[in-house]
Computed example of a mutant assay.
Amino acid sequence: MVASGSADCTIKLWDAKTSLEVHTLEGHSNLVNSVAFLADSLTVASGSADCTIKLWDAKTGLEVRTLEGHSGSVQSVAFSADSLTVASGSYDRMIKLWDAKTGLEVRTLQCHRNWVRAVAFSADGTNFLIAVDKNWVFFAGERVLWLPSYHRHFTCSSTLNGTLALGYGDGRVSVIEFDPPFSTRH
C-alpha cells in the first residue's frame, strides 16, 4: 500500500500492485505535509498544517485519534521501529514523541533554533531519532551535520538504517550515510 498527503487536506491510500485508490481519508482542516505507515501497515499517521497529527486505520479508512499539542504546522511524522512511538516535527521548532497506542504525548524535544522539517527513527531497532531543521541534521539529540545552503531547500526526506535522503524540487537527491560505529556509540 502507498499513502499520499495533499494540499486538498486529504490522505489517499493506494494499492501499489493495481494502482487503484483504496481509501480517501478526510479530517484535516489544512494541507497534509507528511504521512507514515506503522510497521504492520495497518495504521497510518498524517501531519498537517492544521497543527495536528491524525492516526488512521488503513483497513477501514477511519480516523482512530487526533494528536494535539503543536502550535505550528506539523511538517513530518514517523513511527519508531518497535511501533511504540510516533514522532512529529513542526514549525513550532519542537519534536514531540507520542505513545502510538494511546495517543498521549510522551516527551517534547526543544533542541532546534529553527522549524523542524523532517523526523525519522533509525530502522535498526535502536530507535534513535534523526531530525533535520533548516541548517542541521541531528542524530540521537546531537548536532552531527551542518547543511550547506544548497542542501537546505529540500522538499522531502526519508531515512533507512542510518541513511538520510533529501529530495529537491529540481529532481536532485542528496544521500547522507552515517557510519554504523557512529550509531552504536550512543
Rank of each mutant, 00 (worst) to 15 (best):
V35L: 10
F37R: 07
A39G: 09
D40L: 14
S41R: 15
V44A: 11
G47H: 05
S48E: 03
A49R: 11
C51G: 00
C51I: 06
T52V: 10
I53D: 01
K54M: 15
K54V: 03
D57G: 12
D57V: 09
A58S: 15
A58R: 09
G61L: 05
G61T: 09
E63K: 11
E63A: 13
L67F: 10
E68A: 15
G72W: 07
G72R: 05
S73P: 00
S73N: 14
S73C: 14
V74M: 08
S76E: 04
V77W: 02
V77S: 04
V77A: 04
A78T: 06
A78D: 04
S80M: 12
A81I: 01
D82R: 14
D82Y: 11
L84E: 12
L84P: 00
L84V: 07
T85L: 10
V86T: 05
A87G: 06
S88L: 04
S88T: 03
G89Q: 01
G89K: 03
I95D: 00
K96C: 06
L97V: 10
L97E: 00
L97K: 03
L97I: 04
W98E: 08
D99C: 14
A100H: 04
T102G: 10
T102E: 07
G103Y: 06
L104P: 00
L104N: 08
E105Q: 15
L109H: 05
N114F: 11
N114S: 14
W115D: 00
W115H: 09
W115P: 02
R117N: 09
A120S: 15
F121R: 04
F121W: 06
A123Q: 06
D124T: 06
N127L: 03
N127M: 11
I130P: 00
F139G: 01
G141N: 04
E142S: 10
E142D: 10
L145Q: 06
W146D: 02
P148S: 09
Y150F: 12
R152S: 03
R152V: 03
T155E: 04
C156N: 10
C156Y: 11
T159F: 15
T163G: 01
L164A: 02
L164S: 03
A165T: 13
A165L: 13
L166T: 03
